[in-house]
Nucleic acid binder design. Structure first.
Lengths: 109, 109
DNA sequence: GGCCGTCAGGAACATTTTGTTCCGCATGGA
DNA sequence: TCCATGCGGAACAAAATGTTCCTGACGGCC
């Protein structure tokens, strides 16, 4: 599945993430995840789902079934935000929301 | 991935196909495909695509990804985050992302 | 200059997973 | 009864995976 390996690489780059960072977010050793990116190994199905979530994607997309979605600069930013949110605890997520809302309120003053 | 195994079984039944028949159509030995259905083994990614095609489905479906609109406490938070993000400028959005990533980094230390 | 921290990848090895083979058992025609 | 078909257990050989160790590149910092 060269397509899969390439999509891993491309998608992480789109989100501005290093492969090492993706590995940490997924909860894998850097080396192990690197094997997926290089195409040497393939993840099992449960891991495929986790990776897709961290990359704010889906198995269909990563496997080249679905056409890539909107990739405008704004869409990328939203994806990046959701990618972080996906790996945060509920409490930290609430903190992040509060901060974002604070920024918004400040702009309106 | 018990969900996957169950979906294989259910989908084949929906189509009125025996597992042995699906195995033949995919081009696998009956025994090998049976291992996927029982959940003992998992197919590699290329095989996942072939199986999905024969079952007129997709990896997303077979992996149980396309479920209904989730409205758990977590999903509400994500919705709130996106609601704020939607009305932020690109610059402020980047700031929010940076803050969220900083929280993440802090938790790892 | 040296020293860190991060990222990335090669190679070898131990381990796990997978695929095959052989077997048995049940069912439903012909 | 005999045969075809579907299904599944068990054991083994083969293949894929995950880990470990090591190397190098790059940028920031003192």
């Amino acid at each position: 599945m060269d397509i899969f390996a390439n999509n891993l690489k491309d998608r992480a780059h789109e989100l501005g993430l290093s492969n090492a960072e993706v590995a940490r977010r997924v909860g894998l050793s850097e080396r192990r995840y690197a094997h997926y990116v290089s195409g040497r190994n393939e993840p099992d199905l449960a891991m495929l789902l986790k990776i897709a979530e961290v990359l704010q994607s889906t198995p269909n997309e990563l496997l080249g079934l679905d056409r890539e979605k909107a990739d405008g600069p704004r869409d990328i930013l939203i994806d990046r935000l959701n990618a972080v949110a996906a790996v945060m605890t509920d409490d930290d997520l609430q903190a992040a929301i509060a901060q974002a809302e604070a920024i918004l309120a400040m702009r309106r003053k």
